[in-house]
Computed example of a mutant assay.
Amino acid sequence: MKRRRIVTFFMLIMITIVCLFGAGCEGNEVGKKSSLALIKTTNPSPQVIGSKQKDKDVAEKVKKDVMSYKEIYDVAVVKGKKDILVVYKVKHLHRFRMKKIEKNINKILEKKYSDENFTVSSDYKIFLEAVQLKEKMKDPDYSEKDAEKRLKRIISLKKELT
């Protein structure tokens, strides 16, 4: 009788351990899915506050120039009245050289488009803010004034980070 209780007790412990290991492995699966969001390509089209064709052309050219870097796989460009926000994602193996990449991009853009004011960032939060601004601008009720104000806020967020 005593031996039976001991065997039952050990079986209960073994079942508990197996359940805990199973639950632990399931948690890793969720972690993998959320970490993939950092490397997925969204490839948003350049967004222009206002409707000038010249501004749209400049935004397209800026995006094409930044995408020409082999280290970069996703770029979001938002052109305001005075400022252009360029946000990009760097491939994982090149993340150690992010400062150098940002410096090179800034130098190329300032040289090629000397009359424009650029804010360049590789920060993921700034990238998400730019994509959210693009989504909000699809709404016809969202005014250009509100979009410009949000762009200024995003640029100030970038400046706070540096």
Rank of each mutant, 00 (worst) to 15 (best):
52 K>L: 13
93 L>P: 03
79 K>N: 03
76 A>M: 09
48 V>G: 00
40 K>T: 08
10 F>T: 04
72 I>K: 03
70 K>E: 12
80 G>K: 05
11 M>T: 10
74 D>Q: 11
30 V>I: 10
57 D>N: 13
93 L>W: 10
81 K>W: 01
50 G>P: 01
84 I>T: 07
39 I>L: 10
96 F>Q: 15
67 M>D: 03
15 I>R: 03
81 K>T: 11
85 L>C: 02
35 S>R: 11
38 L>A: 04
47 Q>I: 06
54 K>L: 13
29 E>C: 03
47 Q>E: 13
96 F>R: 15
37 A>Y: 07
57 D>V: 12
38 L>R: 09
65 D>L: 06
31 G>V: 12
84 I>E: 02
10 F>G: 06
3 R>P: 01
95 R>S: 08
70 K>A: 14
17 I>M: 14
51 S>G: 04
51 S>Q: 06
48 V>I: 08
87 V>M: 01
32 K>T: 08
92 H>I: 11
36 L>N: 13
92 H>P: 04
48 V>S: 01
37 A>I: 13
87 V>S: 06
57 D>I: 10
16 T>I: 08
59 A>F: 04
5 R>F: 05
53 Q>I: 15
77 V>I: 03
59 A>L: 07
4 R>D: 12
79 K>G: 02
65 D>E: 14
74 D>E: 11
68 S>L: 09
17 I>V: 15
10 F>S: 08
75 V>E: 01
28 N>F: 11
69 Y>M: 03
19 C>W: 11
21 F>G: 08
94 H>T: 08
75 V>W: 00
13 I>K: 03
83 D>E: 14
34 S>K: 02
39 I>V: 14
91 K>L: 11
45 S>Y: 07
49 I>N: 00
76 A>H: 01
83 D>P: 00
26 E>H: 09
61 K>E: 14
69 Y>K: 03
4 R>N: 09
88 Y>G: 02
88 Y>D: 02
53 Q>P: 02
18 V>S: 14
89 K>N: 02
78 V>S: 00
18 V>R: 08
91 K>G: 07
11 M>K: 13
32 K>A: 11
6 I>G: 03
38 L>Q: 07
42 T>Y: 15
71 E>G: 06
13 I>W: 05
21 F>A: 08
26 E>I: 15
28 N>Y: 11
30 V>E: 06
13 I>L: 14
97 R>E: 10
82 K>H: 09
49 I>K: 01
14 M>R: 02
65 D>S: 03
79 K>L: 05
28 N>K: 14
21 F>P: 02
49 I>V: 07
92 H>V: 11
29 E>N: 08
92 H>G: 12
68 S>N: 12
47 Q>P: 04
28 N>A: 07
62 V>C: 00
30 V>S: 05
17 I>W: 12
8 T>F: 06
96 F>L: 14
93 L>K: 15
6 I>M: 10
72 I>M: 05
66 V>E: 01
43 N>L: 04
80 G>H: 06
15 I>M: 13
85 L>T: 01
98 M>P: 00
92 H>L: 12
22 G>F: 06
14 M>I: 12
12 L>A: 15
51 S>K: 07
75 V>H: 01
68 S>D: 11
34 S>F: 09
73 Y>E: 04
21 F>C: 15
18 V>P: 04
